[in-house]
Write a protein that binds this DNA or RNA. Structure first.
Lengths: 166, 166
DNA sequence: GTCGGTGCAAATGCTTTGCATTGAT
DNA sequence: ATCAATGCAAAGCATTTGCACCGAC
């Protein structure tokens, strides 16, 4: 069981640099990455798992399990809640998505593969949220990792602030 | 109800810069900050609320509600689980503690007042975690906020990386 | 004396799991 | 054919809430 984890160390977790392609092209290899990951664990690539990954790719940005479920239903792909959660787990293990929590209630996830991490700023008064991406931050992250001898994979940055009165 | 939030805007959420004092001295004013906050909302400063805040100060670093409960019990301060959760809410609203989530299961909190935020790096293979604090990051945060016209309160930064093989 | 606070136990709501059935290889 | 995956409903678990009693102001 825990061996599965060690195994996934062999499976590349550190994905190739995002190439200068369109969003869609960048996501094209995702399906095969997932397939490879499943094969490495002797798991099966099923219709349901493909559907879930598709729905995630179709979404731009963070999502919750429930949203995914609704999306799938809207497309006529009926996948059970249990399977959605189970697939999310696998995608996390594969390093294809990451958990990005904004509040404690629910888990939020987002695509990791081939993307700049999205940083965000939340207003502590209104709850308003804006997303951004800072190259400087990524550079800082890489520098910190280099100094400590770690290999960067991703990051999560959230700023708590008060938005200007409109 | 929602007025309470607006009200808390008057109560300082943006705490004074950490002064060059010992930990303990830095925490000394916390109790009165909490008191002032409660008064501003016509709430009472009770023994239980004081006990919870004490337990939080006694702990160094992040904590969970359950841990707090055990600490309190160990000191002979019997506070119910419900009250612990209710007090945590208040302290969050007061801006005295902040939520710092490392996993999705449980909420983690930590003292915010008079402290540098703690950034952390997690190993995606071993789960090993180290904490650090980067002035540069805080400066970057402040710069981003200034550019957008927001007022910084705090932040959370987590790096996902792979630790060097020992 | 008045409200708000507390403790208890029950309720919530997201997520996980057991089990019988279905399906990919 | 075999072994894992799915769906359903039930279980888990951290957190919240309703309510009767208690206590700070």
């Amino acid at each position: 069981m825990t061996e599965g984890r060690a195994d996934s160390a062999e499976t590349p977790r550190l994905f190739p640099e995002p190439t200068e392609t369109t969003q869609l092209q960048a996501f094209a290899p995702l399906c095969s990455v997932f397939r490879r990951f499943l094969k490495s664990r002797d798991l099966k690539y099923t219709q349901e798992r493909a559907d879930v990954l598709d729905a995630i790719i179709a979404r731009d940005g963070a999502f919750e399990a429930e949203e995914l479920l609704l999306d799938l239903r809207a497309r006529g792909h009926d996948v059970s809640k249990a399977t959605v959660y189970r697939t999310i787990r696998l995608l996390l293990d594969a390093g294809i998505i990451t958990q990005s929590l904004f509040d404690a209630k629910q888990s939020h996830y987002e695509l990791l593969y081939g993307r700049e991490p999205r940083d965000c700023m939340v207003c502590m008064k209104t709850g308003r949220r804006i997303e951004f991406s800072s190259k400087e931050l990524t550079a800082l992250r890489d520098r910190i990792c280099r100094e400590l001898g770690w290999q960067p994979v991703g990051h999560r940055f959230q700023i708590f602030a008060v938005s200007p009165r409109e």
